[in-house]
Amino acid sequence: MKPTVGVVVFPGSNCDRDANYSFDYLGAGTRFIWHLETDLEGIDIIVLPGGFAYGDYLRTGAMAAYSPVMNSVKEFAASGKPVIGICNGFQVLCEAGLLPGALRRNSGLKFRCMPVKIRVETLDSPFTMGGMWPGQVLNVPIAHFDGSYYADDETLEELIASRRIAFRYCDAGGELTDEANPNGSRQHIAGVLNEQRNVLGMMPHPERAVDPAVGGTDGRLILASILYSLQPAES
């Protein structure tokens, strides 16, 4: 089965084409979905891409969370199909209540655009089940001003207990050092899952680490894992 990836486009999205290119590169079908569309028929995976939806006015993701497509995305997520929000997409998912917590201004008050290392924390999700091992360190770039993950203590305990932290910022050896945390995220969180484990939000950009021509291919593991997760088991 060749899955079809729907890449949502908000006014101000700017990583939509990269996301589209990446899934096309990996052999999936792709379709752009304008934020006013509500019909997700035939879509197997939803991507909320990076960028500055609605100019990041009020708060990052705040306005996009209420755009017409998001009601359909909520239904899509409730049906168990995979949804990945990358960077601004992660912010939108938090604002829409599809993921717990919020993304705050980076602790250093700087826009950070750089390669970082993230550690795979769980294999129990469509995004991490194919071709990774727990503790594996991936090289994936970040590019954000508001990526400092915040959730209260109770929520963090719940995320840890239910193994819903998907990725943590780490150093090259996989250690969670302060220096390796680029934005002051609590618990070094780079990506989290919803309770049903089919919605992932992550600040790093896997779609910028797919084509070796533009630096690194570790992002492929995450995107290809989603495609792999949709394949029926061989009998």
């Binding site: 705040a62 938090c94 915040y150 959730a151």
Partner: peptide, 8 residues
């Protein structure tokens, strides 16, 4: 609902 985010 939107003007403030009660999480933060």
């Amino acid at each position: 609902k939107i003007l403030a985010n009660p999480v933060i």
